[in-house]
């Protein structure tokens, strides 16, 4: 089998194990959907100021939760599951088989992207069906590009962060500490239009707020045009490339003792 076929096969097994692991399935998959429901229940009827006019909270939260879904499925999922696999010696053992390293990591990434894709479909469908969100048919290319660039970057960052995770026990803590505060200040859990300027400046160093911005733009009915946010996409891509560089340099297959 070639590398791509091996990666696909690996992804299928990783997926099967993923659904059977209650912690992984819950925190990666159920969490974003739960947040979508909670935010819409709490804020559902209100409106919020957005570029161009007032939008419903649902129109804010659907793209926000889309961003969270991709981050959860790619960054959180890969960082935690790869740290566990490394600690349990799975990575070392894989390294001893003829399977190319790229096929193994490719399989992990495919599995993460597949989970992200399922979440994206559910979140958009729920938004359109239950929350009256307008499907941005005319901005579909921009939506697709944003999701692809975001997924790629957060997969790379998920692999990169394993370099600073000392062991599996520490993995959830390190991953959540690196991501949760940013989710609160990056226009995802809470709209940050009222936040102080310095906080928004700080948040804009990181890729999450840019990822949110590309998706908010796509779903904002007042923003006409193609919906591409070149500058934001560039920042996300830059973070992704930095993630690749760190992963290539510091990724290890041996358990850390």
């Amino acid at each position: 089998m070639n590398t791509a076929a091996l990666a696909l096969r690996q992804a299928r097994y990783e997926m099967r194990a993923f659904w059977r692991n209650p912690a992984a399935a819950f925190f990666t998959f159920v969490f974003p959907l739960m947040f979508l429901v909670i935010f819409n229940v709490v804020f559902g009827n209100g409106t919020i100021e957005a570029p161009g006019g007032e939008i419903n909270f649902s129109t804010f939260y659907v793209p926000a939760i889309l961003a969270f879904s991709v981050i959860s499925a790619c960054y959180t999922n890969i960082a935690i599951s790869v740290s566990f696999a490394r600690d349990r010696g799975v990575l070392k053992r894989m390294r001893g088989t003829p399977m190319p390293a790229l096929a193994y990591l490719g399989g992990r990434i495919m599995q993460a992207v597949a989970v992200a894709l399922i979440l994206v479909v559910i979140v958009i469908a729920a938004g359109v069906v239950f929350y009256g969100v307008e499907f941005p048919g005319d901005k579909l290319p921009a939506l697709a590009v944003s999701l692809i660039v975001g997924a790629a970057a957060f997969c790379a960052l998920g692999l990169a962060i394993t370099a600073v995770i000392p062991n599996a026990d520490a993995a959830p803590a390190v991953v959540n500490a690196s991501i949760l505060p940013l989710l609160f200040i990056s226009n995802i859990f809470i709209p940050t239009s009222q936040a102080p300027g310095w906080l928004n400046d700080f948040a804009s160093i990181f890729p999450i707020v840019h990822f949110a911005e590309t998706l908010h733009g796509v779903f904002n009915p007042f923003e006409t045009g193609s919906g591409f946010e070149a500058k934001s996409l560039a920042v996300i891509a830059a973070w992704g490339l930095a993630g690749v560089a760190v992963a290539v340099r510091y990724f290890t297959w041996q358990p850390r003792k």
Partner: peptide, 23 residues
């Protein structure tokens, strides 16, 4: 190896089948 190193949520059969596919 000395450590176990297999995916905990697959079955015996699935694990062996997964590794067979590499050879």
């Amino acid at each position: 190896l000395q450590e176990t190193g297999v995916e905990p949520y697959l079955t015996v059969e699935e694990t062996v089948e997964l590794y067979r596919g590499y050879y």
